[in-house]
Amino acid sequence: MTQTISNKQNRTGLALVSTPLGFSLLLLAVPLTMVILMSFWTQNYLVLEHSFKLDNYIEAWTHPLYQQLMLRSVRISFLVTLATVLLSYPMAYFISFYGGNNKVRWLFLVTIPFWTSYLLRVFLWKVILGYNGVVNSTLDWLGIIEEPLVFILYNSNAVIIALTHAWAPFAILPIFVALEKIDRSYLEAATDLGDGPIRRFLRVTLPLSMPGVVAATLIVFIPTIGDYVTPKLVGGKDGLMIANMIQVQFGKANNAPLGSALAISAMGIVGMISILFVGLNRRWLKKE
């Protein structure tokens, strides 16, 4: 009797899980496996050689161009993450601690940029940062600058600004949730035990909100390293990132295996950095 029930339950469970499982197998595991396989093959002009070779990886890791792009991607992604988390934390802190009854309204406002398409938002940054853009004409009108600033568009700074803006909500939300979960009596206890606002923040609020900061960091860092729309639109030639090169390899250069090797390498680097970050953070949290 119990056997049949559990069988029935198993079957229901399988039926429920099969659709998303099939979906993720088809759309995630299969392409990923294909990319991994392809990264070991060789493109011989028009022919794809199905042999197992490490040549693509050797090229990806030794060629100065790819090294430079990879380093730049990591640097941009790192700076975007840093800027996003540093700017999002006060925002989340404000909503959580001073939002009162308007917390939902504030969070709603945070999501407003999502109402327009991402492309449109990036184009708007061109309008804002451009040679005759909002920033330059305002500064000029105020008499602060004589020549328009050029370091804010068509280079990596523009990429960093646009990406930081785009990813801020993804950082605000996890940090907000982490701050909301902190029992306010911990803060009162810290005050009661003699801490002023700054010490209390460093000793209680910050350590207890670290899970949110870690989540925000990963959520921003992992996707931005592979972003290719933003650098293409506002990055100019100095702001291009590894994903632009991967796109070129799969497209114009017609070297999908090298593109695959670059993609897998980028993935590996992101993975390593993320694991290192989580590990360091865990040790740091344990200590204090």
């Binding site: 029992d183 009596s185 911990y186 206890a189 005050t191 009661d192 207890l208 204090e288």
Partner: peptide, 18 residues
């Protein structure tokens, strides 16, 4: 509050979880 010569045992105890 942080400078008063009082200390409190909270209802929830507020033992720092970390």
């Amino acid at each position: 509050a942080n400078e008063r010569p009082t200390n409190m045992v909270f209802q929830s105890y507020a033992i720092f979880p970390h």
